[in-house]
């Protein structure tokens, strides 16, 4: 038994075990998005769920992202078949109402769903404060690099993506981010 070799050779194992140990500290399913920090992709999508006052829009009306420049925009991708979307539904609507008098706009984008199912879901969940739009053929979802629902993008007043949330978002997080974005607005902003 060559003890010198026996004691030195296991050194090979150290980086391997180190790699595995490190691997256990992160989530392999989480994919960081390249979008934060960049201009949010534009969209012009048709409303199908009107939302409630004061955000109400008529079904058929088109929401264009560029027209929302100057406001903090919260874009939330959801689906009626998505279990986790139920968790965040109340938080989103409450947050929307909280910022009803601020330059903040919430928009829901339906993902891989049908209008009847989505409207029925909204009704079951007790209503949705803000309007939701249709994303036919998921072009906007692909534009935003969606790989699951729910995903929420919070855009600053210049239209840049400030935060992307993968999975359900909470009222606390929404408030914190929106507050900081509102505070960071240029002082000469008049809109």
């Amino acid at each position: 038994m060559n003890w010198k070799r026996a004691l030195l050779t296991p050194a090979i194992a150290i980086p391997v075990i180190g790699l595995f140990a490190w691997g256990m500290t992160r989530d392999p399913k989480y994919i960081p998005s390249p979008l934060p920090g960049r201009q949010a992709p534009a969209f012009a999508l048709e409303v199908f769920a009107p939302g409630e006052a004061p955000f109400q829009k008529a079904p058929g009306e088109v929401i264009r992202l560029d027209s929302l420049r100057g406001k903090v925009v919260v874009v939330n991708f959801w689906a009626s078949w998505c279990l986790a979307c139920r968790d965040e539904h109340q938080d989103l609507s409450r947050a929307a109402m909280r910022y009803a008098n601020a330059p903040v706009q919430f928009v829901g984008i339906s993902y891989m769903d049908t209008r009847p199912n989505s409207l029925e879901w909204i009704e079951q969940m007790g209503g949705q404060a803000y309007p939701s739009v249709d994303d036919p053929r998921s072009r906007t979802a692909i534009d935003y690099g969606l790989y699951g629902v729910p995903e929420t993008f919070i855009l600053d007043v210049t239209g840049r993506v400030a935060h992307k949330q993968t999975g359900p978002i909470t009222h606390a997080l929404l408030s914190r981010i929106i507050d900081s974005l509102l505070a960071a607005r240029p002082a000469t902003e008049t809109k």
Binding site: I31, P32, S33, P34, L35, I142, D143, Y144, G145, Y147
Partner: peptide, 8 residues
């Protein structure tokens, strides 16, 4: 696609 999803 890489600009939307990353290298992944």
């Amino acid at each position: 696609f890489v600009s939307k999803y990353g290298e992944w």
